[in-house]
Amino acid sequence: MIREAGTIAGFTGAGISTESGVPDFRSADSPWMQNKPIPFQLFLRSAEARREAWRRKFTMDDLYRHAAPTRGHLGIAALVAAGKMPAVITQNIDNLHQASGLSDKQVIELHGNGTYATCLACGRRHELAEIRTRFEASGEPPTCEACGGIVKSATISFGQTMPEGRLRAALELALASDLFLVLGSSLVVYPAATLPSLAKENGARLVIINREPTPLDEHADIVIAGEIGPILSRIANDL
């Protein structure tokens, strides 16, 4: 099916990165449960909430700072290099698709990127190493050196609007595909989880590779319950 596909839309979730040591969000023992992201509106309202958000951010960063692309990420990169997949849509914020060799244009990050920060007022990019040095020295949440605005990790928090351009790009790829390939996503986070259904309704075949069942399994053409890395490695070797 992969070989015959003209345009593949890849869609990745946390399951593709767990092999790297990046924790998924919903497991009962996940460190995300002890360091939950601060809701966006609370982050805006409260300096104390921003201070706590940055503390939790750096705690989580320390847990997977040495994470490297998995066999799954490399398999995706091989599909892109082979011209099968124009870009990968991801719910992840770990930058591992880029680390596997993909350009920013080949990665549609629906939930942002946790490897840098931006000013919510002027959009200026801020590097985390500098922010951390300032934060640990002062204990105060960072503000933008250019305009004084609130600085936040470049991720989409609960309650924060998803960037329209990214969602539109993801939708366009889904509708252009004849194969929609889900890798390691529970398919319960919306609006991202609507994309496989829309692709399927538009005539694409739907393949889901995930360790646990998803709400769309009964609508998929193929469901594979297993580890993503070995499966994608075999697919990439067959190209």
Score class of each variant (00 low, 15 high):
residue 1 M to E: 06
residue 2 I to K: 04
residue 3 R to V: 09
residue 3 R to S: 15
residue 6 G to D: 11
residue 9 A to D: 00
residue 9 A to V: 00
residue 10 G to N: 00
residue 12 T to I: 07
residue 14 A to W: 04
residue 18 T to S: 07
residue 21 G to R: 05
residue 21 G to Q: 02
residue 24 D to L: 12
residue 25 F to M: 10
residue 26 R to H: 12
residue 27 S to H: 08
residue 28 A to N: 07
residue 29 D to G: 02
residue 31 P to I: 14
residue 32 W to P: 05
residue 33 M to Y: 04
residue 37 P to M: 05
residue 37 P to D: 06
residue 38 I to K: 01
residue 39 P to Y: 06
residue 39 P to N: 05
residue 40 F to R: 03
residue 41 Q to A: 14
residue 43 F to D: 00
residue 46 S to Q: 12
residue 47 A to P: 11
residue 48 E to S: 10
residue 48 E to W: 08
residue 51 R to E: 11
residue 51 R to Q: 13
residue 56 R to Y: 12
residue 58 F to I: 15
residue 60 M to Y: 11
residue 68 A to W: 04
residue 70 T to E: 06
residue 74 L to H: 07
residue 74 L to V: 01
residue 76 I to Y: 07
residue 79 L to E: 09
residue 80 V to W: 01
residue 83 G to L: 14
residue 84 K to Q: 12
residue 85 M to A: 05
residue 86 P to L: 07
residue 93 I to F: 11
residue 95 N to R: 14
residue 97 H to K: 11
residue 101 G to S: 10
residue 104 D to P: 15
residue 105 K to P: 00
residue 110 L to H: 04
residue 110 L to S: 08
residue 113 N to A: 10
residue 115 T to N: 11
residue 116 Y to W: 15
residue 118 T to D: 03
residue 120 L to S: 10
residue 121 A to D: 15
residue 122 C to I: 13
residue 127 E to P: 01
residue 127 E to H: 03
residue 127 E to L: 12
residue 128 L to N: 11
residue 128 L to R: 01
residue 129 A to P: 03
residue 129 A to Y: 01
residue 129 A to W: 03
residue 130 E to W: 08
residue 131 I to S: 02
residue 132 R to T: 14
residue 134 R to V: 15
residue 134 R to M: 09
residue 135 F to H: 12
residue 136 E to P: 05
residue 137 A to K: 15
residue 137 A to L: 15
residue 139 G to R: 09
residue 143 T to G: 15
residue 144 C to I: 05
residue 145 E to K: 10
residue 146 A to L: 09
residue 146 A to T: 08
residue 148 G to K: 14
residue 152 K to D: 04
residue 153 S to H: 02
residue 157 S to P: 00
residue 158 F to N: 04
residue 159 G to N: 10
residue 161 T to A: 09
residue 161 T to Q: 02
residue 163 P to Y: 02
residue 163 P to H: 02
residue 165 G to P: 01
residue 166 R to L: 11
residue 168 R to W: 00
residue 169 A to H: 00
residue 171 L to W: 00
residue 172 E to S: 04
residue 178 D to M: 10
residue 178 D to H: 09
residue 180 F to A: 00
residue 180 F to Y: 06
residue 182 V to L: 01
residue 182 V to R: 02
residue 182 V to K: 00
residue 186 S to E: 06
residue 187 L to F: 01
residue 187 L to A: 02
residue 188 V to Q: 15
residue 188 V to F: 08
residue 189 V to Y: 05
residue 193 A to Y: 03
residue 193 A to D: 01
residue 194 T to S: 13
residue 194 T to I: 05
residue 195 L to V: 07
residue 196 P to V: 04
residue 197 S to L: 14
residue 198 L to I: 12
residue 199 A to T: 03
residue 202 N to Y: 02
residue 202 N to M: 04
residue 204 A to Q: 02
residue 204 A to F: 01
residue 205 R to H: 13
residue 207 V to F: 06
residue 209 I to E: 05
residue 209 I to P: 05
residue 209 I to Y: 03
residue 212 E to I: 04
residue 213 P to N: 12
residue 215 P to C: 04
residue 216 L to T: 08
residue 223 V to W: 08
residue 224 I to T: 06
residue 225 A to W: 02
residue 225 A to N: 14
residue 227 E to K: 14
residue 232 L to A: 11
residue 233 S to H: 13
residue 238 D to L: 08
residue 239 L to P: 01
residue 239 L to D: 02
